[in-house]
Amino acid sequence: MFKLSSDGEAFVQSELKRYETKESAIIPSLYRVQKENGGWVSPDCIQYLSTLMDIPASRINEVFQFYTMFNKEPVGKFHVQVCCNVACCMAGSREMIDKLCEDYGVEEGEVTSDKRFTFTRVECLGACDKAPMMQVNETYHEGLTMDSAKKILRELK
């Protein structure tokens, strides 16, 4: 059964009081849970949050399901999100993610066998002047070439 750290629980409690309505704390709390649960939110986590926040699980679940940044399935330690919207496509991002998936031997959305990587296509991340780009967890990497992207991934610790 999932449980937040005591810091995590304190965070959720403070978020519950931070906004005008306690439901506004759902998104920040889901972020926290996702972080402490290794990058995704399991059904277990929703039940846990429901009890902790005293908000029905169905209510938390509908918010969880709506937003793309909450992962519905496990992801690798490094979630590599490659923008495949207009400017990045024009700069070769589709070929880039295809090649990366091939190199790491996974389909999009799968976790590599060493649990290090998941590759996902995402929509515009607002870095179009430095296309193509990818976001690895919380960090943007812009102005990529195939080689620089590979190098960045190789060097991730």
Partner: peptide, 26 residues
């Protein structure tokens, strides 16, 4: 205060954004 969305283009629509800030689907 700063409030972070969680990935939804529609939250750039002002009433979608308000829904999101209220803790609803955007």
């Amino acid at each position: 205060d700063v409030y972070c969305g969680a990935g939804a283009y529609i939250c750039g629509e002002e009433t979608g954004m308000i829904s999101s800030l209220e803790g609803l689907k955007g």
